[in-house]
């Protein structure tokens, strides 16, 4: 159903997302979840550079996944030089 006039952004102009885009939550696209093996990880940051959805966070030099937006494409798993990222079926996780 049509959106009310007052709820349509003026001239189709919307604020640019700064940290995240609530209008495009890509986490529901994911069928496989990336899991990090901290013991293997060398903090080389290749996965962080390569993630197409900027869904890898860098905190104090080490990486973690932003599952709200990670779409499970598996590029991080492909790119990791030491095999520290594995992909596990999303439905194996109840949360």
């Amino acid at each position: 159903m049509s959106v009310q006039v007052k709820d349509v952004p003026f001239a189709g102009t919307v604020p640019s997302p700064k940290t995240e885009n609530e209008g495009m939550i890509t986490g529901s696209w994911r069928t496989r979840r990336p899991i990090l093996d901290k013991d293997k990880c060398t903090d080389c940051r290749m996965c962080w550079i390569s993630c197409p959805d900027s869904s890898i966070n860098l905190t104090n030099g080490s990486v973690s996944f932003n599952l709200k937006y990670c779409k499970g494409c598996g590029i991080c798993n492909e790119i990791c030089p030491v095999g520290a990222i594995s992909l596990v079926p999303e439905l194996d996780f109840e949360e």
Binding site: G27, S28, R30, T31, P89, E90, L91
Partner: peptide, 9 residues
Amino acid sequence: TEETLVKGV
């Protein structure tokens, strides 16, 4: 067609 769609959609 794919099971994960039960989650989050």
